[in-house]
Design a protein around this nucleic acid. Sequence first.
DNA 1: TCTTCCATGTAACGCGTTACATGATTTT
DNA 2: AAAATCATGTAACGCGTTACATGGAAGA
Lengths: 184, 184
Amino acid sequence: MPSTLGFALLGLLARTPSTGYDLARRMERPVGYFWTASHSQIYPELAALEREALIEHVVVEGPGPRPTKRYAVTPLGRSALAAWVATEMEPQPVRDLETLRLWSVWAAEPAGALSLVDQMEAGHVARLAAYAEELAAVTADPHSADPRHPQFASRLTLEGGVRARRTAVEWCRWLRTQLPAPAE
Amino acid sequence: MPSTLGFALLGLLARTPSTGYDLARRMERPVGYFWTASHSQIYPELAALEREALIEHVVVEGPGPRPTKRYAVTPLGRSALAAWVATEMEPQPVRDLETLRLWSVWAAEPAGALSLVDQMEAGHVARLAAYAEELAAVTADPHSADPRHPQFASRLTLEGGVRARRTAVEWCRWLRTQLPAPAE
DNA sequence: TCTTCCATGTAACGCGTTACATGATTTT
DNA sequence: AAAATCATGTAACGCGTTACATGGAAGA
């Protein structure tokens, strides 16, 4: 069974066949919003997926000293991906550096507390804008209404991102009402 | 400079001096909502924090073959924690297994899609209940109004948890309205 | 000519999880 | 008498990040 990264790559390749390099770039934008990986992780994982016959590659002409490989999902890989989506899994532990810092905010000066909340809010506002823009683009695509089309799933995840970030921004604004005014 | 885990432990010890064993248990409940660690990680990290004079220990009587050590934060550790809270940090990448699975839901049968959303909702509902209960308990403590008291920060983080989970549950309910009805 | 982009890999290191190891006290 | 809890550590392994290494094609 592939690792989580393996299924992330399977999901990417099921949408569009790509080279390893291309996967690394695609990991930054749309999937990157909830999963990331660098190329040094991707290449070995592609080899592992191919060993299990979940993907296969064709060599295409390209630059550089090594052959350029374009990977695609096999029927076996496609059904493995579909099965994994519905697999029973226990909820994974949360790891949130921001909340961890806020949890020790009582030990800091009022100015430091305000600085933290400002940082948090700025980050969430930026993400919200990015998600909202992408959601608008995806919703404009009529494929996003078809449950068996990738754009449909993109729409669902982006909607979640927008809702989560909107809530986070509201929370940050509320946090500021709770903090004491720093001494001038 | 300590690792993130180091600051998590510093935050715990600033609230209440504890043994390593005790820290491992405390990592499960209140902090465990946004950071976790097992005892095998904690013991080496305590040694590292002590080497940097951020914490110190006294030996107390206790069971077992080795001495029982109760750790407490030093003034140096306390100021390191306060400084870390307000440190400038770039937003960390999100890693969300649930959303990653949802992102490939277009490849699954309608029944599988529904199963995934049900799982997600159940998890968020359970967490919401736990956070809400704890928030009620913390808010009842008058210390939670004092910005320099640990309970104050606990209240802020729990409020964020409740808001986030409430939004997530709503999102899951919305997701179900988007999914096709599975064939009977 | 120089820099950026395309493209693929390996190596070293750090963090996190699981498993191994020990043994006294307290509860069932 | 057996099991659970308190208590501390080490070892092995996997995943993720950063750095090292190579070299052609395209653009500035």
